[in-house]
């Protein structure tokens, strides 16, 4: 291949070697959240302010007197990222308008886990999206409250074992409810940009972060984040799981730009969900019937999504 061609293939994928999320943090080995944060920070660059909810990320990155953050970062509470980011954005807006500071295009970003987003922080986030603040919100979805010890959230998938949805003699499936569809809730706010991503598709993830930053108004990014500790899987298969979840159609990668759906990767045929489920201890109690039920649900949801993509 000619060198020019090689560069064309390579250069768009060329990513910064800067690590604004510095190494030395205390995440578990194989943590998918830490991996995702690292990629997100590479795409975000330096001109950002990050607001972080309580949760694993905050705990493993900010143990006093150390910090992993090379960009301005603030944590206050668990459920208020949407509101804190609204305040920061409004402060910049007012101060720029009043001539107190220059407009340097600072990007305002919220980080929270699935609990901090789809449960306790939903109200504050909904308010921020509805009011139309200019910010990017990243939900790092590891499908449970991991920081407090693997308790279920509304984002925990059907059938998963957690410490508050345990597998017992009477209750034998673990989580009895289906995962809340948080990206669709964001879409329902009619914000200009909603997307799903997985750090196992790093270029796709970074492209989406960039689009979310550039679009004026609220942008919501839902990032699948493997948690080997909570999911009872070996840390070396984090990336594999993050790929399988997409290939099985359990967590499709898509974007909704101004209401228009686009699938980011499509497969002629989805892999069976069994391949994904069997690799994780949190699903090991599931019977064939449970797995069939999950398979049917995944196919139905995937079909529904494809109709939305086709419908446009």
């Amino acid at each position: 291949m000619a060198q020019e061609q090689e560069e064309k293939l390579f250069l768009p994928r060329f990513i910064t070697t800067d690590e604004n999320f510095a190494p030395g943090h205390r995440a578990c080995i194989g943590c998918g959240e830490a991996l995702a944060v690292r990629h997100v920070c590479k795409a975000l660059g330096n001109n950002v302010i990050i607001v972080n909810a309580t949760g694993c990320i905050e705990i493993f990155s900010s143990l006093l007197p150390l910090t992993s953050w090379r960009v301005p970062w603030i944590h206050t509470l668990f459920e208020n990222v949407g509101a804190v980011v609204s305040g920061i954005e409004s402060a910049y807006k007012a101060r720029i308008r009043k001539g107190k500071i220059e407009d340097r295009g600072v990007v305002f970003v919220g980080f929270a886990g699935d609990g901090g987003t789809s449960d306790i922080g939903l109200q504050a986030l909904s308010g921020a999206m509805e009011r139309g603040h200019n910010f990017l919100y990243c939900c790092f979805d590891n499908e449970a409250y991991m920081n407090t010890g693997i308790q279920r959230s509304s984002s925990t998938p059907y059938g998963a074992w957690t410490t508050t949805a345990p597998v017992g003699k009477k209750s034998i499936v673990g989580q009895m409810t289906w995962k809340k569809n948080m990206p669709e809730i964001a879409v329902a706010h009619r914000i200009p940009y909603v997307a799903t991503a997985s750090p196992s598709f790093p270029f796709d993830l970074m492209d989406k972060v960039k689009r979310g930053m550039e679009i004026e108004g609220p942008a919501y990014l839902h990032i699948f984040s493997v948690c080997p500790t909570g999911w009872r899987c070996p840390p070396e298969i984090t990336v594999e799981i993050g790929r399988l979840v997409v290939e099985t159609g359990i967590f499709p990668l898509y974007e909704v730009i101004n209401g228009e759906y686009h699938l980011s990767v499509d497969f002629p045929e989805l892999k069976p969900v069994r391949e994904y489920l069997k690799k994780q201890g949190r699903f090991r109690h599931l019977t064939e019937k449970d797995i069939e039920r999950i398979q049917a649900r995944v196919e139905e949801e995937y079909q529904r999504l494809k109709e939305k993509v086709g419908g446009k």
Partner: peptide, 16 residues
């Protein structure tokens, strides 16, 4: 009100 005070915290930390 939870968000009212949270937004004040953010705005104040941003210098407002």
């Amino acid at each position: 009100e939870h968000s009212a005070m949270s937004a004040c915290v953010g705005a104040s930390a941003a210098g407002a």
